[in-house]
């Protein structure tokens, strides 16, 4: 059937255009997605697969993307769903609910506890007049040691600079929860940074 390419020509051209449009819109975000994938699963090959699955899924559901809304947030949502489907379904990792509980628990902290963590941050801030004296490894460890629920909101906010509203849609939680996770996560992050720095002897030396 030598003529079949002629018959399918128009459909194929439509597909080509669609694919081109999709690529132009989504491929610039590949580094961000890969970066996030690496913070979900700390393994390069698996992160690559996760990003690839995200793109294929996004392509398949491209018609459901609302033009004019944030494509980056949409891609991050698919990435997150793919990650959960693939890696957390069977795993015995505590789910969303448990962290929700912790969120509430922490917002209802006693004044005394608040005071303690507040002082901790101040100590860190006052002792590190040169913020750049943190080592790359300290930062890496501090980020990786955060529970995934805090890690993802912090990265979406600090690195990707997405709005609370976008983050709330990606993480599938209310904006209030995003805020409390950010606050809590940042405190935890500073705490572990402090500890890594202390272990390394950096802070003691400056005493």
């Amino acid at each position: 059937m030598g003529v079949e390419s002629k018959g399918n020509g128009i459909q194929m051209r439509d597909d080509d255009n669609k694919q081109k449009e999709f690529e132009e819109l989504t491929m610039p975000h590949i580094d961000s997605l890969y970066n996030m994938a690496l913070r979900y699963i700390f393994n390069k090959e698996e992160a690559e697969d996760l990003v690839q699955d995200t793109y294929l899924k996004a392509y398949r559901f491209y018609s459901s993307f609302q033009q004019g809304t944030n494509i980056k947030a949409w891609l991050f949502k698919i990435l997150r769903n793919t990650f959960i489907n693939k890696y957390r379904k069977a795993a015995s990792v505590p789910g969303e609910v448990l962290y929700e509980d912790i969120d509430t628990l922490h917002t209802e902290q006693t004044a005394e506890q608040e005071g303690v963590s507040g002082k901790l941050t101040d100590t860190l801030a006052s002792r590190c007049d040169e913020i750049s004296s943190f080592m790359e490894d300290d930062i890496k460890h501090a980020i990786e040691s955060l529970p995934v629920e805090y890690r993802e909101v912090i990265l979406l906010s600090d690195v990707e600079e997405l709005s609370y509203k976008d983050i709330s849609e990606i993480a599938n939680v209310p904006v209030g929860t995003v805020k409390s996770r950010l606050n809590r996560g940042r405190k935890l992050l500073q705490k572990s940074l402090w500890e890594y720095a202390k272990d390394r002897g950096f802070i003691d030396r400056r005493k």
Partner: peptide, 30 residues
């Protein structure tokens, strides 16, 4: 600092190529 640390990471070029190739062989858009 966190941002600087994270944006250091870039996706490998072969991943980019692999995705484009996969999209193409994905067939008719449905």
């Amino acid at each position: 600092l966190i941002k600087a640390h994270c944006v250091n990471t870039v996706a490998p070029t072969y991943l980019h190529d692999r995705i484009i190739k996969n999209l193409t062989s994905f067939g008719i858009y449905q």
